Simulated scan of single mutants.
Amino acid sequence: MTEISSSATVAPGLARFPAFLYGLLIAGLGLGVYLTGVLLGFFRLLLQADGQLLWVVDRIVWYSGMPVVAGLILILCDLFVLLPYKRGNRVVRWAPSKEQSLTVVLTAFNDELSIGSAVEDFAAHPLVRRVVVVDNNSSDRTSEVARKAGAFVVHEPVPGYGSCVYRALREGLRYTDTELTLLCEGDMTFRAYDIDKFLAYLPHADLVNGTRISEQLREQRTQLSTFMYYGNFFAGKLLEVKHLGRGTFTDVGTTYKLCRNRPLERLLPSLNPSINLEFNAHLLDTALARGLAVVECPITFHNRVGFSKGGNSSNWKALKVGSRMILGIVLGWRKRQ
């Protein structure tokens, strides 16, 4: 018996509609209204207010159930009606790369203390053809140390994490003798021995994204605090429900990624380098929206050498970056200060 394609019963636009994501938002709004009503009821009892306030509290609590129910309906619709069409007739992908040698591109900003060790670590891996360091206006000896360690160094004059990562990906595509580009940072939080893990996942994907959520693979002291750990997990799940049926995601903030060059060439024009510290979430969201196969790979995570200059420097800064990630996933990506 011939299977009926999803397009024959559900319009493609409807099959792509992120009902789960919007259901969560609507139900969350209803829950917020409900809690507001409960809080007002508490103050009414505390202050022994008149019956008018009781009427207001009663209406708030009563009508808060409407968005909660509407959100749950959207979630259940996505899970039990649309999900089979979103998944389609997909089979497990197996497409090994003919060439496994790769170009490593490292982003760097004032990483004088770590960049030399990072370059030497990646250059020593037998499959690495070259290491390119993209220096984003460092004021220390980052470029000098990187060259001394054997890296090709390029200077990215536009400040910002997104500009640096975007330039790194462009540099990786410049080399035609490798079909793979490995993106990483030069702060020694990641190690070259995880390349073998990435390559094991590569036959299933266009882009393999490292995840730091495996507790057993994290050092005791890293820049990823408990708040940032679960914040990344939450943002990853938000991305997952937005692209329901496309993958499982637990970490949207890591830079460590392995990309096939041909899909990367198609993806690059859709990326916005003006997006700053939330660029990695933007990259994953855009890749999924453009139909690239994205798979997560558990990687080791180590304490960085030197000081963090990005979103991991404090919980307050991480909260702001995480909020922009969530806004980008939900409302779309644009430049934010």
Rank of each mutant, 00 (worst) to 15 (best):
L47I: 09
R129T: 15
L268V: 03
R191Q: 13
L47Q: 12
L292G: 04
E240F: 01
I329W: 06
K237F: 05
Y229L: 12
V104K: 11
A108C: 06
V241R: 03
V252H: 02
T222N: 07
Y34K: 03
L202C: 11
G328M: 09
A192F: 03
P298V: 13
S139R: 13
L83D: 02
M228F: 06
A8T: 07
I329G: 02
D58L: 03
T248R: 09
S323C: 11
V61N: 04
G210Q: 08
E240R: 01
F20H: 10
F233S: 08
F198E: 11
V91N: 06
A151V: 01
S7I: 12
S163K: 05
Y63C: 01
Y63T: 08
G247P: 10
S314A: 12
K98W: 01
P18Q: 07
L202W: 07
I275G: 05
E171W: 06
G88L: 13
N89H: 14
R290E: 15
S139P: 00
M66A: 14
L31C: 06
L29M: 10
A151Q: 09
F279H: 04
N89R: 09
V330W: 07
C77G: 11
V92A: 14
V305N: 10
P67A: 06
K86T: 00
Q48K: 15
E3K: 08
L45K: 07
E112M: 07
E185T: 09
Q216P: 00
S138V: 10
S7R: 14
K320Y: 02
G210Y: 05
Q216T: 14
A289S: 15
I213T: 10
V38Q: 14
F20N: 06
A49I: 07
G306A: 08
L199I: 12
G28N: 07
W94T: 11
L74N: 06
L292T: 03
V69P: 01
R324T: 05
K257L: 10
H204M: 14
Y166I: 02
Y166K: 08
Y193L: 12
P12R: 04
H204A: 14
V10D: 04
L264H: 04
L217S: 04
L25D: 01
D50I: 09
H302Q: 08
S214Q: 05
S163T: 01
L40M: 12
F152V: 15
K237H: 13
R44V: 05
S313A: 11
S6R: 06
V131A: 11
M188G: 05
W316C: 03
V241E: 03
V91E: 13
P269C: 07
E171I: 06
V321Q: 07
L173N: 07
K242T: 10
R191A: 15
F198H: 06
V104T: 13
E296F: 06
A70E: 03
L46Q: 11
S270P: 00
